[in-house]
Amino acid sequence: MSDPVSALNGASFNGFASVREVGPLGMISLRHKGGAALTKAIKAAVGTKVPAQRKIEVAGDKACGWMSPDEYLLVLPYGEVGAAMDALAKALDGEHHLAADVSDARAVFRVEGDKADQVLAKLSPVDFATLEPGELRRSRAAQVAAAMWAQDGGFTVVCFRSVAVYVMGLLTHSAQPGSELA
């Protein structure tokens, strides 16, 4: 078997902020109504606590984001998804839940630089000035769904894999040198 290939194979652009496609990145969509078993399962899978509403808990190269009252996004190295799925199945045995490997269904971008937020402010109806630390915001980037959060001096943007070329086009357009908003 070949190595997994991310949607754009690491494409990048340097404008007033830098944009690069990262990955492949492991992602699990976990649906569960909450409770002690969930806490245990998330801990076992990615080592974080259960994130509060709209928050993402980061622990090293793993994270768990709140997607909706009964949906969480687990982020982890691509190669560790199988083990994490096993851990979830074990911890949630007998509990009503759904865990789906969605690593391949997504494209992930990093937008970095002092003005990274300005790139995103051109695409999403999101008030980045009031975005709280550790807040995961689901919204849209122009015409497609996107989730984004601030991390390590930049933003991580997640979209569907099939529109990766479109989103890269958006980010490139928005990061053009000279088009800073302030």
């Binding site: 649906r31 839940h97 759904l98 391949d104």
Partner: peptide, 8 residues
């Protein structure tokens, strides 16, 4: 529970 895994 449902999950749309079309693109996976």
């Amino acid at each position: 529970f449902t999950a749309n895994v079309t693109e996976q």
